[in-house]
């Protein structure tokens, strides 16, 4: 497996390119922008993007899809049936997405948004805005916040300790680190504890 994180400065978000070594098929997670630099990265490694995996349909995670689809015939996998008017393959908990020999397991993690998904491949987990290093995603109201915490506890913190989390914003982390140090996972920690409501 080849793996490249890519920073999208327009939305301060992360997108991730993962490719199967043999088939050179690649998946792009959360293309928040599509620029020459990303195209060069893809092409210089002889890759073809055949799948777009959307953790949730906020602009900073999908805005590059239109440009991408002009270049590559890629299937879009999302909780929603349509993204930016493009039809998707609606994706649910327990689904498996195969890209070459790569296997992505789909985990529903609602809370930050109703359509939030996480994708797991090997020991890597892509959480979008559900969980980032030291923080949780924002939620629209208290009920959504409880749903968010429940999603994280049930579906992410139960994964093996050394699962590496690649979030939609900010640096990577590990499951064991979030379990130990993420104060926002504490019910007593109010939603307004952090000043960083930026995603």
């Amino acid at each position: 497996m080849r793996f490249f994180p890519h920073y999208v400065i327009s939305g301060f978000s992360n997108m991730y390119l993962l490719a199967d070594d043999e088939s050179r098929e690649a998946a792009l997670i959360d293309p928040g922008y599509f620029d020459g630099e990303l195209l060069k990265l893809i092409e210089s490694h002889g890759l073809t993007v055949s799948a777009v995996l959307v953790t949730h349909a906020h602009e900073s995670h999908i805005a590059g899809i239109a440009t991408l689809l002009r270049i590559y015939e890629a299937k879009i996998y999302s909780f929603r049936p349509k993204i930016l008017d493009y039809p998707t393959i609606p994706t649910r908990e327990g689904d498996v997405i195969r890209v070459g020999k790569l296997r992505f397991d789909v985990i529903e993690t609602p809370g930050h948004s109703r359509d939030s998904l996480s994708f797991r491949v090997a020991n890597l987990l892509f959480t979008g805005d559900t969980l980032t290093a030291g923080l949780t995603g924002t939620a629209a109201h208290d009920q959504a916040h409880h749903l968010l915490l429940s999603s994280i506890r049930k579906s992410i913190l139960t994964l093996p300790d050394d699962t590496i989390i690649f979030p939609g914003h900010g640096p990577p982390t590990r499951v064991c680190l979030e379990r130990a140090d993420n104060a926002m996972l504490n019910e007593l920690c109010p939603r307004s504890r952090s000043s960083s409501a930026f995603f």
Binding site: Y7, A133, G134, G170, P171, T173, L177, A180, D181
Partner: peptide, 14 residues
């Protein structure tokens, strides 16, 4: 010492 160092998108939590 981190002098003239770029520490970009790194996790030093806790």
């Amino acid at each position: 010492e981190f002098i003239n160092t770029d520490v970009f998108r790194c996790n030093l939590n806790a």
